[in-house]
Simulated scan of single mutants.
Amino acid sequence: MKWGLLGGTFDPIHMGHLRCAEEIREIFELNRIVFIPASKSPHKLDAEITSFYHRAQMVRLAIEGNPSFSFSDVEHQRAGKSYSIETVEYFLNKYLKSIEIYFILGQDAFQAIQTWKEWQKLLLLCNFAVLTRPGYENMGLSGALPEEFSAQFTYDEKTSGYRGPTGHHIYFRKVTFLDISSSDIRSRVRHGKSITYLTPDPVRHYIQKNNLFQMD
């Protein structure tokens, strides 16, 4: 079984998230994509973030009807900050390594991977699927990782990925770039503008029903 793990604040989840997940599922022939909202993102501690309850409900609504998409509140179950290393270890321990994990993230996040908790260990625990996007030149591993660490990886022509010492790969894959951001959606809602076609209709209706992202 091959699972993709897609974390994020999802405030709110939008079509860009969903389309990227679908394309990565198809590219790597994954059996499942697990959407994992962060409870307390260590990189956004000072930001005003919608309650986990509402963000989780919106994710559930967005993926409803897609049998390949599922939801996990594992990061809300843990106290303290939401660290990806702990999330990956949770899934590996729960399923006794019977699943092959593909950790999905954008190239901008990968460029900042050295700011993540135990990033060296994390990169050796599972496969990484890095979504390339305009504005972030694909420089391979050298653009994000120290030379002494990246030297452990060898480019594999067969898989078009960088194979590490534990047998896991770091892949860079181009996906359809939808220039949609959660912050723009929130801004549009605050200013009374339409968000139709930016996020699934059930999510849009939920936002309206619960008066989310309104000005104070």
Rank of each mutant, 00 (worst) to 15 (best):
G140D: 01
E86C: 07
R173Q: 12
R188E: 10
L123A: 10
S84K: 02
H169K: 03
L131C: 09
H168K: 11
Y171R: 00
S181H: 12
S84R: 04
T115L: 10
H191D: 15
F71L: 14
G192S: 14
D184S: 15
H76N: 14
E75A: 06
I104Y: 01
N93C: 04
G135P: 06
E75F: 11
E118M: 06
T115S: 15
Q77Y: 06
E100T: 07
L141A: 06
P200H: 12
S70G: 09
L105D: 05
F103M: 09
L96T: 07
T166P: 03
F110I: 02
R133E: 10
N138R: 06
L123Y: 09
S68W: 10
W116P: 04
K117M: 05
Q114R: 12
L131P: 04
L145I: 03
Q77D: 10
H169N: 04
A112M: 12
S181P: 12
E157R: 08
Y162T: 02
P67T: 06
K193A: 15
L105F: 06
L178R: 08
I195M: 14
I113C: 08
A151V: 02
T132A: 06
Y102W: 07
R190Y: 12
Y83M: 07
I170H: 08
G143R: 01
K121Q: 08
K94I: 04
T115Y: 08
T166G: 04
L178M: 14
D156I: 04
S98M: 09
M139H: 06
L141G: 08
Y83G: 12
Y83P: 11
T196R: 15
P134N: 11
F153S: 00
T154D: 02
R173I: 01
R163T: 00
V175S: 11
P134Q: 12
G135Y: 09
E100D: 14
P200G: 15
I180H: 08
I185T: 14
N138L: 07
P134D: 05
T166H: 01
D184T: 10
M139P: 01
F110V: 00
K81M: 11
C126I: 00
L123I: 08
F153I: 03
A79T: 11
P165R: 10
R186F: 12
T87Q: 05
G161Q: 02
D156N: 01
Y95C: 07
T196E: 15
S68R: 11
L105N: 09
K121N: 08
R173D: 05
Q77M: 13
S142V: 05
F103Q: 04
S182Q: 11
E137K: 03
R188Q: 10
S182P: 10
G143C: 07
L131I: 14
T87E: 05
D73K: 13
G192E: 14
Q107M: 09
L198N: 11
V88M: 09
L92S: 03
V88H: 01
L124M: 12
R163F: 01
F153P: 00
C126N: 03
T176N: 10
V74C: 06
S82W: 07
I99T: 08
V175G: 06
T196Q: 15
Y83H: 11
E137L: 06
T196G: 14
F153M: 00
